[in-house]
Amino acid sequence: MELEGLVRCSTNYVPLTPISFLERAAKAYRDTTSVVNGSVKYTWGDMHERCLKIASALNQLGISHGDVESVFM
């Protein structure tokens, strides 16, 4: 939605990446349900914590930004 006469700047517009979206959602909606899978429910806070743990585990395995592996090799 474009507001007439409003100029986009850092004060009123910041594009969200998947990471910045998750961080913002965890802050703004920490205790709000984000995912439901059957009887299992996760909040945005839970999702943020789980993603940080996965990122940490990948880092500990030596996997970093730009590393790729083909599943077809």
Rank of each mutant, 00 (worst) to 15 (best):
Y29S: 02
V7Q: 08
W44A: 05
T11R: 07
N12D: 06
M73Y: 15
L6R: 08
R30N: 11
L16H: 15
L61M: 13
L61C: 05
L22M: 07
H65F: 15
S64P: 02
L22N: 02
V68P: 03
H48R: 05
K41P: 06
F72W: 11
D67G: 02
K27H: 14
R50S: 08
R50Q: 10
I63W: 15
F21T: 02
E23Y: 10
D46P: 00
N37G: 08
K53E: 09
S64E: 06
A55P: 05
V14W: 06
H48W: 07
G66Q: 05
D67A: 05
L22P: 00
V35Q: 07
L58N: 09
V40P: 01
T17M: 00
K41D: 04
Q60F: 14
H48C: 00
S39M: 11
T43R: 03
V14I: 05
N12G: 08
M1P: 12
V68D: 11
D67L: 08
S70H: 09
T11M: 04
L58T: 00
G45M: 00
N37F: 07
N12E: 04
M73H: 13
S34Q: 09
A57I: 03
D46R: 07
F21G: 00
N59G: 10
V71C: 05
R8P: 00
F72I: 08
H48M: 03
L3Q: 05
L61A: 12
S70A: 07
E23Q: 08
N12W: 01
D46L: 02
S39R: 14
K41A: 14
Y42E: 06
L3F: 09
G45P: 00
H65A: 10
I54E: 10
E49S: 13
V7H: 11
R50F: 05
V40F: 13
H48F: 10
T17Q: 02
